[in-house]
Protein backbone atom coordinates (compact mmCIF):
# COMPACT_ATOMS: atom_id res chain seq x y z
CA UNK A 1 0.00 0.00 0.00
CA UNK A 2 1.73 3.22 -1.09
CA UNK A 3 1.94 5.93 1.55
CA UNK A 4 0.75 9.50 0.91
CA UNK A 5 4.23 10.73 -0.05
CA UNK A 6 4.47 8.11 -2.76
CA UNK A 7 1.05 9.11 -4.06
CA UNK A 8 2.20 12.73 -4.18
CA UNK A 9 5.09 11.64 -6.39
CA UNK A 10 2.73 10.02 -8.90
CA UNK A 11 2.09 13.12 -11.05
CA UNK A 12 5.84 13.68 -11.36
CA UNK A 13 6.39 10.05 -12.32
CA UNK A 14 3.65 10.32 -14.93
CA UNK A 15 5.15 13.55 -16.25
CA UNK A 16 8.55 11.87 -16.54
CA UNK A 17 7.00 8.92 -18.33
CA UNK A 18 5.13 11.08 -20.80
CA UNK A 19 7.77 13.79 -21.15
CA UNK A 20 10.92 11.71 -21.34
CA UNK A 21 10.38 8.01 -21.85
CA UNK A 22 7.71 8.32 -24.52
CA UNK A 23 9.73 10.65 -26.80
CA UNK A 24 12.80 8.46 -26.30
CA UNK A 25 10.81 5.39 -27.27
CA UNK A 26 9.65 7.20 -30.39
CA UNK A 27 13.27 8.09 -31.20
CA UNK A 28 14.30 4.44 -30.83
CA UNK A 29 11.53 3.35 -33.19
CA UNK A 30 12.24 6.06 -35.79
CA UNK A 31 15.97 5.31 -35.75
CA UNK A 32 15.19 2.00 -37.50
CA UNK A 33 12.90 3.60 -40.10
CA UNK A 34 13.93 5.12 -43.42
CA UNK A 35 12.92 8.23 -45.37
CA UNK A 36 11.33 8.41 -48.78
CA UNK A 37 13.02 11.63 -49.90
CA UNK A 38 10.85 11.88 -53.03
CA UNK A 39 7.62 12.04 -51.05
CA UNK A 40 9.21 13.40 -47.86
CA UNK A 41 7.67 10.61 -45.86
CA UNK A 42 9.05 8.55 -43.02
CA UNK A 43 8.82 4.89 -43.99
CA UNK A 44 8.21 2.53 -41.07
CA UNK A 45 10.29 -0.63 -41.03
CA UNK A 46 13.38 -2.14 -39.51
CA UNK A 47 16.68 -1.10 -41.03
CA UNK A 48 20.12 -0.45 -39.60
CA UNK A 49 21.30 2.14 -42.14
CA UNK A 50 21.11 5.05 -39.70
CA UNK A 51 22.95 3.18 -36.97
CA UNK A 52 25.61 2.06 -39.46
CA UNK A 53 26.09 5.69 -40.52
CA UNK A 54 26.40 6.98 -36.96
CA UNK A 55 28.62 4.20 -35.63
CA UNK A 56 30.58 3.59 -38.83
CA UNK A 57 31.39 7.16 -39.86
CA UNK A 58 34.24 8.43 -37.62
CA UNK A 59 32.74 11.95 -37.67
CA UNK A 60 30.00 11.11 -35.19
CA UNK A 61 32.05 9.18 -32.58
CA UNK A 62 34.46 12.14 -32.78
CA UNK A 63 31.70 14.68 -32.17
CA UNK A 64 30.27 12.60 -29.32
CA UNK A 65 33.75 12.20 -27.81
CA UNK A 66 34.18 15.96 -28.13
CA UNK A 67 30.96 16.49 -26.16
CA UNK A 68 32.22 14.20 -23.38
CA UNK A 69 35.60 15.96 -23.37
CA UNK A 70 33.95 19.38 -23.28
CA UNK A 71 31.80 18.27 -20.34
CA UNK A 72 34.78 16.72 -18.54
CA UNK A 73 37.10 19.70 -19.00
CA UNK A 74 34.45 22.22 -17.96
CA UNK A 75 33.54 20.14 -14.91
CA UNK A 76 37.19 19.86 -13.84
CA UNK A 77 37.89 23.57 -14.34
CA UNK A 78 34.77 24.70 -12.50
CA UNK A 79 35.51 22.28 -9.62
CA UNK A 80 39.08 23.62 -9.34
CA UNK A 81 37.84 27.22 -9.30
CA UNK A 82 34.62 26.49 -7.43
CA UNK A 83 36.21 25.19 -4.21
CA UNK A 84 38.30 28.30 -3.43
CA UNK A 85 35.34 30.48 -4.37
CA UNK A 86 32.89 28.50 -2.21
CA UNK A 87 35.35 28.47 0.71
CA UNK A 88 35.64 32.26 0.45
CA UNK A 89 31.86 32.62 0.40
CA UNK A 90 31.64 30.34 3.45
CA UNK A 91 33.81 32.71 5.46
CA UNK A 92 31.75 35.78 4.63
CA UNK A 93 29.74 37.41 7.43
CA UNK A 94 26.17 36.15 7.36
CA UNK A 95 24.66 39.44 6.16
CA UNK A 96 26.96 39.47 3.11
CA UNK A 97 26.13 35.95 2.07
CA UNK A 98 22.83 36.84 0.45
CA UNK A 99 24.55 39.65 -1.46
CA UNK A 100 27.22 37.19 -2.57
CA UNK A 101 24.57 34.75 -3.71
CA UNK A 102 22.93 37.38 -5.90
CA UNK A 103 26.31 38.41 -7.33
CA UNK A 104 27.22 34.78 -7.99
CA UNK A 105 24.05 34.21 -9.96
CA UNK A 106 24.03 37.55 -11.79
CA UNK A 107 25.59 36.19 -15.01
CA UNK A 108 22.74 33.69 -15.26
CA UNK A 109 20.14 36.46 -15.36
CA UNK A 110 21.43 37.57 -18.75
CA UNK A 111 20.60 35.39 -21.73
CA UNK A 112 23.17 33.11 -23.32
CA UNK A 113 23.26 35.16 -26.53
CA UNK A 114 23.92 38.35 -24.56
CA UNK A 115 26.85 36.67 -22.81
CA UNK A 116 28.15 35.39 -26.16
CA UNK A 117 28.19 38.85 -27.72
CA UNK A 118 29.73 40.26 -24.54
CA UNK A 119 32.59 37.75 -24.93
CA UNK A 120 33.05 38.93 -28.50
CA UNK A 121 33.37 42.51 -27.30
CA UNK A 122 35.90 41.49 -24.68
CA UNK A 123 37.99 39.02 -26.69
CA UNK A 124 37.63 40.25 -30.28
CA UNK A 125 40.28 41.71 -32.57
CA UNK A 126 39.30 45.24 -31.48
CA UNK A 127 38.06 44.01 -28.11
CA UNK A 128 38.89 45.06 -24.60
CA UNK A 129 41.68 42.54 -23.95
CA UNK A 130 43.48 43.09 -27.25
CA UNK A 131 43.18 46.87 -26.93
CA UNK A 132 44.65 46.68 -23.45
CA UNK A 133 47.51 44.38 -24.48
CA UNK A 134 48.35 46.57 -27.44
CA UNK A 135 47.97 49.76 -25.42
CA UNK A 136 50.50 48.41 -22.92
CA UNK A 137 52.78 47.37 -25.85
CA UNK A 138 52.71 43.78 -24.64
CA UNK A 139 51.77 42.53 -28.11
CA UNK A 140 52.32 43.98 -31.60
CA UNK A 141 49.15 42.57 -33.18
CA UNK A 142 45.81 41.43 -31.77
CA UNK A 143 45.83 37.90 -30.39
CA UNK A 144 43.46 36.13 -32.74
CA UNK A 145 43.26 32.93 -30.69
CA UNK A 146 41.32 34.77 -27.99
CA UNK A 147 38.16 34.61 -30.09
CA UNK A 148 36.80 31.84 -32.33
CA UNK A 149 38.98 29.06 -30.96
CA UNK A 150 38.61 26.07 -28.60
CA UNK A 151 40.09 28.35 -25.93
CA UNK A 152 37.13 30.74 -26.27
CA UNK A 153 34.60 27.92 -26.01
CA UNK A 154 36.31 26.53 -22.91
CA UNK A 155 36.51 29.95 -21.27
CA UNK A 156 32.88 30.86 -21.98
CA UNK A 157 31.58 27.49 -20.79
CA UNK A 158 33.72 27.74 -17.65
CA UNK A 159 32.25 31.17 -16.93
CA UNK A 160 28.69 30.07 -17.69
CA UNK A 161 28.78 26.95 -15.53
CA UNK A 162 30.90 28.15 -12.60
CA UNK A 163 27.87 29.41 -10.60
CA UNK A 164 26.24 25.96 -10.71
CA UNK A 165 29.35 24.26 -9.34
CA UNK A 166 30.06 26.97 -6.76
CA UNK A 167 26.50 26.94 -5.48
CA UNK A 168 26.52 23.15 -4.99
CA UNK A 169 29.90 23.25 -3.25
CA UNK A 170 28.89 26.20 -1.08
CA UNK A 171 25.82 24.37 0.19
CA UNK A 172 27.91 21.26 0.90
CA UNK A 173 30.52 23.32 2.72
CA UNK A 174 27.87 25.04 4.83
CA UNK A 175 26.85 21.59 6.09
CA UNK A 176 30.45 20.54 6.80
CA UNK A 177 31.51 20.42 10.45
CA UNK A 178 34.56 22.67 10.22
CA UNK A 179 35.84 21.29 13.52
CA UNK A 180 36.95 18.20 11.58
CA UNK A 181 39.12 20.34 9.35
CA UNK A 182 40.48 22.18 12.38
CA UNK A 183 41.23 18.82 14.04
CA UNK A 184 43.16 17.68 10.99
CA UNK A 185 45.15 20.94 11.04
CA UNK A 186 45.77 20.58 14.81
CA UNK A 187 47.12 17.10 14.18
CA UNK A 188 49.65 18.51 11.76
CA UNK A 189 47.94 18.26 8.36
CA UNK A 190 48.96 21.06 6.02
CA UNK A 191 46.10 22.94 4.26
CA UNK A 192 46.20 20.93 1.02
CA UNK A 193 46.30 17.45 2.63
CA UNK A 194 43.58 18.57 5.06
CA UNK A 195 41.47 19.66 2.11
CA UNK A 196 42.10 16.46 0.14
CA UNK A 197 41.57 14.07 3.06
CA UNK A 198 38.81 15.84 4.98
CA UNK A 199 37.01 18.64 3.09
CA UNK A 200 36.90 16.97 -0.31
CA UNK A 201 35.47 13.61 0.84
CA UNK A 202 32.94 15.26 3.16
CA UNK A 203 31.66 17.52 0.39
CA UNK A 204 31.70 14.85 -2.30
CA UNK A 205 27.90 14.81 -2.58
CA UNK A 206 27.91 18.56 -3.30
CA UNK A 207 30.76 18.11 -5.77
CA UNK A 208 28.80 15.29 -7.40
CA UNK A 209 25.65 17.42 -7.74
CA UNK A 210 27.63 20.33 -9.16
CA UNK A 211 29.61 18.09 -11.48
CA UNK A 212 26.51 16.44 -12.91
CA UNK A 213 24.86 19.80 -13.54
CA UNK A 214 27.97 21.31 -15.14
CA UNK A 215 28.70 18.19 -17.19
CA UNK A 216 25.16 18.03 -18.60
CA UNK A 217 24.97 21.76 -19.35
CA UNK A 218 28.37 22.05 -21.01
CA UNK A 219 28.33 18.76 -22.95
CA UNK A 220 24.88 19.71 -24.23
CA UNK A 221 25.63 23.33 -25.16
CA UNK A 222 25.29 24.16 -28.84
CA UNK A 223 25.18 27.97 -28.98
CA UNK A 224 28.46 28.72 -27.22
CA UNK A 225 30.63 26.53 -29.51
CA UNK A 226 28.61 27.66 -32.55
CA UNK A 227 29.00 31.38 -31.91
CA UNK A 228 32.38 31.48 -30.16
CA UNK A 229 34.25 28.37 -31.30
CA UNK A 230 34.84 29.57 -34.87
CA UNK A 231 35.78 26.84 -37.33
CA UNK A 232 36.31 24.46 -34.40
CA UNK A 233 32.75 24.95 -33.12
CA UNK A 234 31.19 21.77 -34.53
CA UNK A 235 28.99 19.85 -32.10
CA UNK A 236 26.98 16.65 -32.22
CA UNK A 237 23.90 18.72 -31.32
CA UNK A 238 24.31 20.96 -34.36
CA UNK A 239 24.50 17.82 -36.52
CA UNK A 240 21.33 16.49 -34.93
CA UNK A 241 19.64 19.84 -35.59
CA UNK A 242 20.73 19.69 -39.24
CA UNK A 243 19.48 16.15 -39.73
CA UNK A 244 16.11 16.78 -38.07
CA UNK A 245 15.41 20.21 -39.50
CA UNK A 246 17.21 20.73 -42.76
CA UNK A 247 17.59 17.26 -44.21
CA UNK A 248 14.37 15.69 -42.89
CA UNK A 249 16.55 12.68 -42.07
CA UNK A 250 14.86 11.81 -38.81
CA UNK A 251 16.22 8.24 -38.58
CA UNK A 252 19.86 9.41 -38.69
CA UNK A 253 19.06 12.28 -36.31
CA UNK A 254 17.38 9.81 -33.92
CA UNK A 255 20.29 7.36 -34.02
CA UNK A 256 22.78 10.18 -33.36
CA UNK A 257 20.65 11.67 -30.57
CA UNK A 258 20.28 8.29 -28.85
CA UNK A 259 24.00 7.49 -29.17
CA UNK A 260 24.90 10.88 -27.75
CA UNK A 261 22.40 10.50 -24.92
CA UNK A 262 23.57 7.02 -23.96
CA UNK A 263 27.22 8.05 -24.06
CA UNK A 264 26.57 11.11 -21.91
CA UNK A 265 24.55 9.06 -19.41
CA UNK A 266 27.35 6.48 -19.10
CA UNK A 267 29.99 9.22 -18.80
CA UNK A 268 27.94 11.08 -16.19
CA UNK A 269 27.37 7.86 -14.23
CA UNK A 270 31.11 7.09 -14.21
CA UNK A 271 31.85 10.67 -13.20
CA UNK A 272 29.32 10.49 -10.33
CA UNK A 273 30.58 7.08 -9.18
CA UNK A 274 34.17 8.33 -9.21
CA UNK A 275 33.32 11.43 -7.17
CA UNK A 276 31.15 9.56 -4.68
CA UNK A 277 33.96 7.08 -4.06
CA UNK A 278 35.86 9.99 -2.54
CA UNK A 279 33.24 10.06 0.17
CA UNK A 280 34.20 6.59 1.45
CA UNK A 281 37.58 7.64 2.72
CA UNK A 282 36.87 10.33 5.30
CA UNK A 283 34.97 7.99 7.59
CA UNK A 284 38.19 6.14 8.29
CA UNK A 285 40.04 9.40 8.74
CA UNK A 286 37.33 10.73 11.02
CA UNK A 287 37.36 7.66 13.20
Amino acid sequence: MPDSRQILALPVVLLLLVGAILPLTILVVISFWSVDFDAFELVPGFGLASWREILGNPTYPYLIGKAVLTGGVTTSLTALAGYPLALSLLRLPKRWKSVALVVLLTPLYTGEIVRIYAWRLVLGTDGLVNSLLMGLHLVDAPLKFLLFSPFTTALALFYDELPFMTLALWIALERLDMRLVEAARDLGARPLPAFIRVTLPLTSTGLCAGALAVFALSAGDMQTPNFLGGPSGATALASIDNFFGTAFDWPTASALALTLLLTLIVAAALLAAGILRLGGRPARVAR
Partner: peptide
Protein backbone atom coordinates in the same frame (compact mmCIF):
# COMPACT_ATOMS: atom_id res chain seq x y z
CA UNK B 1 17.69 14.84 -53.96
CA UNK B 2 20.60 13.45 -51.90
CA UNK B 3 20.50 16.36 -49.46
CA UNK B 4 21.11 14.07 -46.51
CA UNK B 5 24.43 13.05 -48.14
CA UNK B 6 25.30 16.76 -48.46
CA UNK B 7 24.52 17.21 -44.78
CA UNK B 8 26.80 14.32 -43.89
CA UNK B 9 29.61 15.90 -45.92
CA UNK B 10 29.03 19.22 -44.17
CA UNK B 11 29.17 17.49 -40.77
Amino acid sequence: PNYSAWLKIWN
